[in-house]
Amino acid sequence: MTNVVLLLSFVVTLSHIPILFADSLQDYREQGIVDWFNPKVTVQIKNSMDGGEHITFHCKSMDKNLGTHTLGPGQFFEWKFRPSIFGAATRFFCNIRWRRYSVDFDAWVSSSESSPCKMCLWDVTKDLIIGPDRYVHWK
């Protein structure tokens, strides 16, 4: 009789575990194992110019061309991607133009020496382009 009571208690306890952890597991269920193992990266370029200035930029990687875009003051453009986990490194590079100035820079590069950002914000100002942990001067 004791074994039956213990077995029933064990079964009832096991049946409540999914209920107890349902909220915390919901995020994992919605994201899936790929998001947990290799989450998406977001890169955003924002026009932080004052005085009504527009900027034009073109960003691409080796296998994805994001096209040419023009942003007015306060506007931004962003894209999301999963970095490559096999083989070649993932790299997005951009060219930004404003008036007679133009600058090329790496917006995101995977590297074994550093841990790249997961939310990478680039602010374009009249003085320079400010990104995560670095800045780029106009040329």
Rank of each mutant, 00 (worst) to 15 (best):
L128K: 13
F57K: 01
G131E: 03
V103A: 13
A88L: 12
Q31C: 15
L25K: 13
C120P: 02
I17H: 10
Y28A: 00
T68A: 05
R100L: 13
D104T: 15
N38V: 05
N38Q: 08
D123M: 08
F10M: 01
D123T: 05
G131R: 11
D133N: 10
S15V: 00
L71Q: 01
F77H: 14
S48P: 12
F86P: 02
R91K: 09
G72W: 11
F93W: 12
H16S: 15
G131W: 00
V12T: 13
V11P: 00
G67S: 10
W122E: 06
D23H: 08
F57M: 14
K46I: 07
N3G: 13
T125C: 03
L71N: 02
F92V: 04
F57W: 06
W122Y: 01
A89G: 12
C120Y: 02
T68R: 14
S61V: 04
I130M: 14
K80W: 03
L121S: 10
L121V: 10
P132A: 14
K139S: 03
A22F: 11
V11K: 08
Y135L: 13
W138H: 03
F92P: 05
Y28I: 03
C117S: 05
F37H: 08
I85R: 10
T13F: 03
S84F: 07
P132T: 15
G32D: 01
H58Y: 01
V41C: 06
S24A: 11
I55H: 12
A88R: 15
H54Q: 15
M49Y: 12
V124W: 03
I129E: 04
R99F: 14
G87D: 03
S15Q: 06
Q44V: 15
M62Q: 11
P39C: 14
D27N: 11
S15A: 13
V109T: 07
L25D: 11
G32E: 04
A22K: 14
K40G: 04
Q26V: 10
L20D: 08
W108P: 01
P73V: 00
R134I: 04
Y28R: 12
R99W: 06
T13H: 07
K80N: 14
M1R: 09
P39A: 06
Q31S: 11
F21P: 09
P132Q: 08
G74F: 09
K126F: 00
S61R: 04
F10A: 02
N38G: 00
L128V: 01
S102C: 08
G32Q: 04
Q44L: 13
C117G: 03
M1W: 02
I55E: 05
D63H: 08
S48C: 08
V103H: 10
V109S: 07
V124I: 06
K126D: 04
E113G: 06
Y28Q: 01
G52N: 09
K118P: 07
G72I: 09
V109A: 04
D104M: 15
F21M: 09
F21V: 15
V41F: 02
G131L: 01
V5C: 02
S111A: 04
D106M: 12
D127A: 14
